[in-house]
Nucleic acid binder design. Structure first.
Lengths: 217, 217
DNA sequence: TAGATTGTTAATCGATTAACAATC
DNA sequence: TAGATTGTTAATCGATTAACAATC
């Protein structure tokens, strides 16, 4: 599955391809050319072909790309052909929002448990997901290994929780806290720094540019 | 305030500089060199100097940068020297999570109102913010103009709401819905596509790279 | 003054776009 | 076969890093 190393810029675009192909599939479209897709996605056809060819030739000259095939292949590249166990650390609104969002489960991300230090929350079942006290984290994970942890807690405890999670075998950290985390090599950290996102809006409101939408996370 | 056009890559890094400088300030650090800062932030000193010089010389040879001064200047560049009125469209967990997060207000983003189509929500006050029915949007905005709208609603209604918001004078859209929005020129859209962020984690779990943390949003 | 560190130019590296021969 | 469109190489553009003279 892992051929030559794929550039960060390409990886960033893959989920967007996946989304557009999913929509095309839903609309019953069977084939699409890089040119048509480029029109819809607002990127160049050249970039699409260049991107896809990182993974091998999915297309056919004179025909284009088979939508379903390409969708499946990108899904595999993204690792969506398996499931991932996810725990949520911090059962506040943000944690619940994530737990609640059904589309993640559809893609294979299964939310198993939430953890919170607030005693009044533990024992509850929120949106079908049990909340445990943070003190139970290691015990829980030793019996129910998790692939990914979402950190939806105050930044003060993010680093400490990360260390505990990594020690307990979690390999991916989805970090919503406003800190940069130190992790051992091999551990994946994906940051969602909402306040930075918001500041980019204020910047752009005050400094009009050409066009284009903002980045995503 | 707007000199030559600043590259997207630089703008993306500005909030992170701002965050690190804020922390240094809190720690009572008065001056810092690009070299020291580069060590903390894990980027090159050269890049820091290059980035900052887009906006003019904030430093002093032989001394470095005055932390407070640089913090204030980057704040101004980011447009944080004024306040922004924000409305939230969709009063679910995600909307409430955002409304709830006090740090945004500290930076000048003031959440004024939430809107939701669910009749049982309107009339309520959630975290001190009133929830109105979506039908009231135009009436409300004509009396209480907003700069920014956060879209925390299902993707099906995102485009329609965007059109209404833009027509009512909103200039910045913070889009949490999983669609790309069409907007007139001059309107700022900042996407936070959480599912794409999550897929990048699964990709990276299956395709180990060298190092480095994931992008943010 | 000597030492430190910036501001800035030049060199390198990487990513995007253009072009076109291969081929379905 | 002729037309369409890919896969891929080459050209361009942009961003990052290195180097160093200017200067505090």
């Amino acid at each position: 599955m892992a051929q030559k190393t794929i550039s960060r810029a390409v990886v960033k675009r893959l989920p967007r391809y996946y989304r557009y192909l999913g929509e095309l599939m839903n609309d019953g479209v069977e084939r699409i050319s890089s040119r048509d897709l480029s029109g819809r996605m607002n990127i160049t056809a050249s970039q699409i072909r260049q991107d896809l060819n990182n993974f091998g030739g999915f297309g056919q000259q004179g025909y284009g790309y088979n939508v379903r095939h390409l969708y499946d292949e990108i899904g595999k590249i993204l690792g969506l052909d398996r499931t991932y166990s996810v725990v949520i650390i911090g059962a506040g609104h943000l944690g619940q929002a994530i737990a609640n969002y059904g589309n993640f489960e559809r893609r294979g991300f299964v939310f198993r448990a939430m953890f919170d230090i607030r005693p009044e929350l533990s024992g509850q079942i929120l949106n079908g997901i049990p909340v445990y006290p943070t003190s139970m984290l290691e015990t829980y994970l030793s019996k129910n290994p998790a692939d990914i942890a979402a950190l939806t807690l105050p930044k003060e405890s993010a680093q400490e929780m990360t260390a505990r999670l990594v020690a307990a075998g979690v390999r991916g950290i989805w970090n919503f806290a406003h800190v940069d985390l130190d992790v051992p090599e091999g551990i994946v950290v994906e940051n969602v720094h909402l306040s930075e996102s918001l500041m980019r809006i204020s910047y752009r409101l005050n400094n009009p540019e050409g066009e284009e939408q903002g980045e995503n996370g």
